[in-house]
Design a protein around this nucleic acid. Structure first.
Length: 609
RNA sequence: CGGGGUGUAGCGCAGCUUGGUAGCGCGUCUCGUUCGGGACGAGAAGGUCGUAGGUUCAAAUCCUAUCACCCCGACCA
C-alpha cells in the first residue's frame, strides 16, 4: 500500500519564479538585527506601524514553525480549531478585560454600530464555545488550540516582528475539573511544558525556561520560554548552580541574614541621638534626595504605601488591615507580588488621595507611620533591616531625616510580628543569593519571550458561567489553563539569536529552504540539468531546495545566499565540475567551502542538516 | 500618554537657512564589454516634494492645520 502521507518529499523551487527582493540597504526604521536582516533578505515588508507582509521566504519559515507546533501539540493530546479574529466586545466586558487591556484592544464598529474587538487572545471566545458544547465532566479534560493572527494596538510597536500590532500566535486552552492527578490541570500544564520544550528544541533555538508572574491574563502559576540573546528586551535571572531561572518580577532571593543590631558593613554607624530633619523640597526621586542629603541611595530607606484589597486570605491576623508599608533600601525596588505574598492579602499601590487623607505624606513616608497610622502592617526587606543610621522621609511634606535607627525610632513595635515583618519584598538583582543553592549567586541574562504558559484557574469560567456537574452531582466551575507561542516572534527571535555580519544563519529545521543550489551559468543546459538532478535527489530525501537560476554575477548570488542564510549551499560551476564535483559550503562555517564529488554531494548535504 | 525627530523616485539621502522650472548614490530598463564574493561604459525610464489651506508674480523651501512614521520614556504577551 502506498503511504497515506506523501508530504515527506521536499520542495524544489527556482529563485526566478518566487519573490525574494533582497536589498543592500534596509529601511531606516529597521534597527534591530532581526528587523534589518529579515527586511534586507526579502522575508518581510512593512505595511504600517507594527504591520508586516510575510513574503514567500518568511511564509515558508513560519509554516515550518507552525508544523512543528502542530505536531507537538497534537502529540500532547491537544486538538486544533480555528476561531474568528472578530470578537464581540461584550465578551471582553463580561470578564472585565476591556478594562484590563484598555487601549491595547483593537476596536472595530460594524455598520449597525455594534462594537467588536480584533482578538488579542481568545479566552472569552473559547470559554463561550466550550460552555455551549460540553455538558458533562465526562467530556473533560480537553485541550484546544489554534494558530491565528492576533491583534494588539501597541502604544509603540517596535523592533520589526518582535513587537507588532498584528502577529501570528498559537494559543491553547485546557479545561479540567480538578487540579491534581490524572486528567487534572497540572497534568495538562506539565504536558504543555514538555511540548514547549520539544517545540523550541526542534526549532533549533537556544532557550531558557523561567518562572514568571502570570500578568494581566490572571492565574496562579506560570512559565516563560525565553530565547537567549544579548539583544533581548527582557532580563532574566539564573542560578548557575541549580539551574533555577526566573524573570525579574518573579525571581526569589535566597536567605539573607539581617539584624537590627548589626550595622551593615558599609553603613555609617557610630553615635546616638535622634533623627536630624532636613528641608528637601521639589526633589523628584531618591537619587535627587540622596544628592542633597549627601548620602548614597543605598543608605536610604524607601517606603511604599500599599492598600489592602479585598478580604485577606486564610488566617489573617488583623481583619482591620488597611495599609501595608513596604520598606526597601533606596537603591532597590519593591515587588508587588512579594508584598502580596508576605502580607497574605491582595494589595495595590495606594490611591494617593486616600493615603494622604490617612496621614501618609506620600513621597516623604517613613516606617514610623506603622506606629501612628491604625490598621497598618510594616514589611521590611532584609537589606533594609540593619542597625545602620538611615536617611528616610520625615512623614512631613518637603522634609527628610537622617540618622534614622530602627530600634530608636520604632521601639517595641519592631518585635510585634503582627505589625512588623522582615521579608523578601524586593525585585531580585544579579549578585543576590540564589534561592535554590547555598552559596551561589544569581546572574543576569537577556532573552526574548516566545512562549508563555499559565494556570488560569476559574477566572474565565466563573466570569462567563462555564460550569458542569461533577461525578458527585455538584455544579463546579471548569478549571482552565492557557498556553501561548508567538509564532512570528519566534522567527524574529531566531534571527536575533543566530546571525553574523553577512546575514541570517538559519537552523535547518526552520530554514525556508535547506539547500540553495547556486547555478553560476544558468544558461548552460548541462549545468541546469545537473542542478535539477541534485535538487530532485535531495527532495526525495525530504530536503527543500531552491535553485538560484538568476542571470546575475556570482558575487551577487553568493552575497544573497549568505544574507538569506540557507544552511547549505551547493555551487554548480566550471571550477568544481573540472574536478568532477560541486562546491559544498555550510552557512555556519566560514571560508570558501570545498569540492565534493558528484556522487557524494547529496549525502554531504544531508549529513550537515 | 510625555519628550525629541522625520516625511523629496523602489531603497538610502541632498536641496529648505537666503522662495525662482527637483538632484545624487544604489536599484530598474536598453546596448556593449565583462563573469567564482554586491563589475565597467554609454544611454533611458521613474517624483501630485505626506495631505489640505494660506502668503507670494512665483512655494519642496515661508506660515497654519492635519495625517503618517521613527527614536527615548511610560506601558507591555
Amino acid at each position: 500500500m502506498p503511504p497515506l502521507n506523501t508530504s515527506s518529499r521536499g520542495d524544489v523551487h527556482r529563485w526566478s519564479q518566487t519573490l525574494i527582493p533582497t536589498a543592500r540597504e534596509a529601511p531606516t526604521d529597521a534597527e534591530t538585527p532581526s528587523h534589518i536582516l529579515l527586511s534586507r533578505a526579502g522575508f518581510i515588508r512593512k505595511v504600517a506601524a507594527g504591520v508586516y507582509d510575510y513574503l514567500p521566504l518568511a511564509w515558508r519559515t513560519l509554516g515550518k514553525i507552525m508544523r512543528i507546533v502542530r505536531e507537538e501539540m497534537n502529540a500532547a493530546g491537544a486538538a486544533e480549531l480555528f476561531m474568528p479574529v472578530l470578537v464581540p466586545f461584550e465578551f471582553y466586558r463580561e470578564t472585565k478585560r476591556d478594562q484590563a487591556y484598555g487601549d491595547l484592544l483593537f476596536r472595530v464598529t460594524d455598520r449597525k454600530g455594534n462594537l467588536a474587538a480584533l482578538g488579542p487572545t481568545h479566552e472569552e471566545t473559547i470559554t463561550e464555545l466550550v460552555k455551549g458544547s460540553i455538558t458533562s465532566y465526562k467530556q473533560l479534560p480537553l485541550n484546544l488550540y489554534q494558530i491565528q493572527t492576533k491583534f494588539r494596538d501597541e502604544a509603540r510597536p517596535r523592533a520589526g516582528l518582535l513587537r507588532c500590532r498584528e502577529f501570528i500566535m498559537k494559543d491553547a486552552y485546557s479545561f479540567t475539573m480538578h487540579v491534581e492527578g490524572p486528567g487534572g490541570l497540572n497534568e495538562q500544564y506539565d504536558a504543555m511544558y514538555a511540548a514547549y520544550n520539544n517545540i523550541f528544541r526542534r526549532c533549533g533555538l537556544d532557550f531558557t525556561v523561567v518562572e514568571a508572574e502570570s500578568g494581566p491574563i490572571g492565574g496562579s502559576a506560570s512559565h516563560e520560554f525565553m530565547v537567549n540573546c544579548a539583544s533581548g528586551e527582557d532580563t532574566i535571572l539564573k542560578c548557575p548552580a541549580s539551574g533555577y531561572a526566573a524573570n525579574v518580577e518573579k525571581c526569589e532571593i535566597g536567605e539573607r541574614s539581617w539584624s537590627f543590631d548589626t550595622p551593615h558593613e558599609t553603613g555609617a554607624t557610630a553615635g546616638g541621638g535622634g533623627v536630624v530633619k532636613h528641608h528637601t523640597p521639589n526633589l523628584p526621586g531618591i537619587d535627587e534626595v540622596a544628592g542633597v542629603l549627601k548620602v548614597a541611595p543605598r543608605q536610604m530607606l524607601k517606603t511604599i504605601v500599599f492598600e489592602a484589597k479585598g478580604p485577606a486570605r486564610d488566617g489573617d491576623p488583623s481583619p482591620s488591615l488597611r495599609w501595608i508599608l513596604a520598606t526597601v533600601r533606596g537603591d532597590h525596588d519593591a515587588n508587588e507580588g512579594k508584598v502580596k505574598a508576605a502580607s497574605g492579602c491582595a494589595v495595590a499601590l495606594a490611591d494617593e488621595k486616600a493615603a494622604r487623607a490617612a496621614g501618609f505624606a506620600i513621597g516623604y513616608v517613613s516606617p514610623r507611620m506603622a506606629a501612628s497610622a491604625p490598621g497598618t502592617l510594616l514589611l521590611i526587606d532584609p537589606d533594609a533591616a540593619t542597625g545602620d543610621a538611615w536617611a528616610t522621609g520625615a512623614d512631613e511634606k518637603d522634609y527628610h531625616v537622617t540618622n534614622f535607627r530602627w530600634k530608636a525610632e520604632m521601639g517595641q513595635i519592631l518585635a510585634d510580628n503582627q505589625r512588623v515583618k522582615v521579608a523578601d519584598i524586593r525585585n531580585a538583582l544579579p549578585g543576590d543569593p540564589s534561592p535554590r543553592a547555598k552559596g551561589a549567586t544569581l546572574e543576569a541574562a537577556r532573552g526574548i519571550e516566545v512562549g508563555h504558559i499559565f494556570k488560569l484557574g476559574t477566572k474565565y469560567s466563573d466570569a462567563m458561567g462555564l460550569t458542569v456537574l461533577d461525578d458527585k452531582q455538584q455544579r463546579r466551575s471548569v478549571i482552565m489553563g492557557c498556553y501561548g507561542i508567538g509564532v512570528s516572534r519566534t522567527m524574529a527571535a531566531c534571527v536575533e539569536m543566530s546571525h553574523d555580519t553577512d546575514g541570517i544563519v538559519w537552523p535547518a529545521a526552520i530554514a525556508p529552504y535547506h539547500v540553495l543550489i547556486t547555478l553560476l551559468k544558468p544558461d548552460h543546459p548541462e549545468h541546469a540539468a545537473l542542478a535539477r538532478r541534485l535538487a530532485d535527489d535531495l527532495a526525495s530525501y525530504g530536503a527543500d531546495v531552491l535553485i538560484d537560476d538568476r542571470d546575475e554575477r556570482p558575487g551577487v548570488k553568493f552575497k544573497d545566499a549568505d544574507l538569506v542564510g540557507f544552511p547549505v549551499r551547493l555551487t554548480v560551476g566550471e571550477k568544481a565540475l573540472a574536478e568532477g564535483g560541486v562546491e559544498f559550503k555550510a552557512r555556519k562555517t566560514s571560508g570558501k567551502g570545498s569540492v565534493v564529488k558528484l556522487p557524494d554531494a547529496v549525502a554531504a548535504c544531508l549529513a550537515s542538516l
